[in-house]
Amino acid sequence: MKYFLQRIAFYLFTAWAAITLNFFIPRMVPGDPVQSLISKFRGQMSTEAINSLYVLFGLDDNKGLWTQYVDYWKQLFQGDLGLSFTFFPSPVSEIIGDALPWTVTLVGITTVISFLIGTSLGVLAGWRRGSWTDGLLPVTTFFSSVPYFWLGIIAIYLLTGPDSFFPSSGGFDSALVPAWDQYFIPSALQHSLLPALTILISSVSGWILSMRNMMVTVSSEDYITVAHAKGLSERRVAVSYAARNALLPNISGFALSLGFIVGGTLLVEIVFSYPGLGFILLQALGAKDYPLMQGIFLVITISVLVANLLADLAYLLLDPRTRKEG
């Protein structure tokens, strides 16, 4: 418990540091970035947008740095991340709130499925090493080295077209209005199939490989021989001795990959023009929409931290050696 509290304190500190950095970076941009932005937009910016920019870059000279910092935190706690100017006048929090569910559902579900399938196949391949399952290895190595987005481009090229079942872009049929009804949900599912498959195929191989290798390593441990010598059933040795121990590194890998759900599959979303966070980030980058970028980075930072905390917790639960007595 003490260890757990220590971890929490550590993560709180890291979160504080990340958010503080997030506050300072725009303020460290030299010169007057606002002026250059204004000239870039050729006067098409409203006064409110210009004001929000000045606040963001800390160029509203009325306040000192400390007051700005305190205000920043106050706004953060109210969920106010400023105004986006690509989607002006929507607040950043609203845009992120709209995009986040798309990403989390698509990537979240595929990550979990990919982990479950990959780990089970890895256990099998590791336990029956030397049999036909080893023939799968070159295939998985190939797929795990193929980048997501390339697979996505190939999938779009080969599988989509005017009369194809698979739509080539978007998260739902543009004729529909997002709602929980019988028109929208099937459309969203249909649109998510191809990106989901792309992520699944390229990420499942990684889980298979790492789990198989851990299984092979663990299988040569003394306690596996002891378990065999004890006359336990093959299944019990494979599951409760070998797989149970081989799972440990994969679990932390899984928890970490949860953190990258939000930011990690940017390129897939871009390739499929999927309305998730990655796609928004691309637009924000293109438009130099600093408040939006800052907001997205904040979300990514926090999700990575939460995932790390989860990894620690999972380890604490699964590996008694990490628990400290006291």
Partner: peptide
């Protein structure tokens, strides 16, 4: 038959005292 024979008829105490027990089980 071999599974039933093992440990019930012939048990083994192995070389590595340190690694003969699975670290994650009580």
């Amino acid at each position: 038959g071999l599974r039933e024979f093992r440990w019930a008829e012939t048990a083994i105490v192995f070389q590595g005292a340190m690694n003969s027990l699975n670290p994650v089980h009580k």
